[in-house]
Amino acid sequence: MSKHRIIAFLTALAAVVGLAILIPMASPAAAATCASPWNSASVYTGGMAASYNSHNWQAKWWTQGETPGAADVWADEGACGGSSGGSGGTTGGGSTCSYPAWAAGHNYVTGDIVKYTNGGYYIATHDNPGYDPTISTWFWSPYTCSGSGGTTGGTTGGGGGTGGFVVSEAQFNQMFPSRNSFYTYSGLTAALSAYPAFATTGSDTVKKQEAAAFLANVSHETGGLVYITEIDKSGNYCASEPYGCPAGTYSYYGRGPIQLSWNFNYKAAGDSLGIDLLDNPGLVETDPAVAWKTGLWYWDTQTGPGTMTGHNAMVNGAGFGETIRSINGSIECNGGNPAEVQDRVSKYQSYAAILGVPTGSNLSC
């Protein structure tokens, strides 16, 4: 007779004669340690974890304010218990990570965690052949020992709305006294986790110079953060691409702090951020965090008509002039429109002064 049949027989016999049969039960596995509690105000990107109702949950893609268990964006990772802290490299109640160094060209699968050269940790949100973790949140997201995203190990400022950004809210308000209420400081800080190298690379002076340079260009593009979309929307912003323009021929006009334009830029920015902007370009004018993320996407990853990104121009000492070239150099630089260039330079000088840092050289293009 099999083991299971013997147990069933003894249980039935016990019920008849009134005996208690103690049947050995398998010891339940220890509950997983809970990740940091879910916060409705925090931004989570694919692969980030949070705990809610004694369960760990993993974000499938970008989300904010969508309750775990009530929204399809969250995957239930099972019950958890004990102190918040996550697994893999966390010792006791501290936050010491122990993960291998990232290696270019190494094949990574979703869930792999690495230590990058900037001292921060990143988790693979999609399989990739060793892409740089600071290039795209489609393939990587910042990771802390609590598994909740953000930055660690010497990287500051990308904490999704928490402290650490080199520009305070008071300084931000001083820079943009007449800004549209859409462009919130919290939206900006929530977007920082998408590109954690922004304003966190180099010395404190370089970090502030980069922030000032980005915000100066943003100010020029939006009239001091007044305009959410461009005024003239009559142009054809649909280039001939295999994916076409599913949201409509004229739906890819300039939006957001860098005035993201054209279907191919919406497609590329959306792919990088893990958000479908090709089908939903309106997100850039309705979600402050998404709007700021598209600005940071361009700043950190696109060279435009220049030879380097705005981020690289500032952290590698090329100067503010090269950031102008990367954004609108084909029209403004080399004498094309000196008044526009000077407006950008003047704003940069003003913002650098507010942050208490020198401007550096090579201001013009």
Rank of each mutant, 00 (worst) to 15 (best):
A71Q: 10
G105Y: 12
H220T: 05
A59C: 04
E169C: 06
G256D: 03
E285T: 00
T137M: 02
D287M: 01
N265H: 04
G18Y: 15
Y52M: 11
H126Q: 14
E169Y: 06
A50Y: 04
N56W: 05
A213P: 01
T155K: 01
D112K: 00
N328R: 11
Y108S: 09
N128H: 07
D204A: 15
Y253H: 03
A289T: 14
S219E: 10
M48I: 00
F320N: 05
V167N: 00
I327S: 00
W74F: 06
E340I: 13
G160R: 08
G154E: 09
S168F: 12
G81L: 04
A31M: 05
N118S: 14
I7A: 15
P24D: 09
S203P: 04
P133Y: 06
A197P: 11
A268K: 11
L188W: 02
P242E: 01
A101Q: 13
T63L: 14
A289Y: 03
W57K: 07
N312R: 12
M175D: 10
S95Q: 07
A15M: 14
G164V: 04
A70F: 09
A103M: 12
G306L: 10
F165E: 01
Q259F: 00
T134Q: 07
N316R: 15
N312I: 15
W138Y: 15
A216R: 01
N173F: 13
V167S: 06
A101S: 14
Y252C: 03
S2W: 04
I331A: 12
N128A: 13
W74A: 07
G47T: 06
S203G: 06
A30S: 10
Y52S: 11
W297H: 07
D271F: 10
I7F: 10
Y243H: 12
S251Y: 02
K3W: 08
K207Y: 04
V73F: 02
D343N: 10
S181Q: 13
Y122V: 05
L296C: 01
S141F: 02
G18S: 15
T11Y: 12
Q302C: 03
K293V: 04
F182C: 06
H106M: 14
V16F: 15
A190E: 05
G274L: 06
I258L: 07
G306R: 03
T303K: 13
S350D: 06
G319T: 07
G65S: 15
G158K: 07
S84Q: 12
A352H: 03
T303M: 11
N337L: 03
L363N: 01
Y227E: 09
A247R: 03
E241L: 12
Y227S: 09
G360W: 01
A59Q: 01
Y116F: 12
L192C: 03
Y108C: 08
G153T: 00
M1D: 07
D300R: 08
I23M: 15
N362K: 04
P358L: 11
G85L: 06
G310M: 03
L363F: 02
W262M: 05
G335D: 07
C238R: 00
V341Q: 05
W62P: 08
G224C: 11
M314P: 01
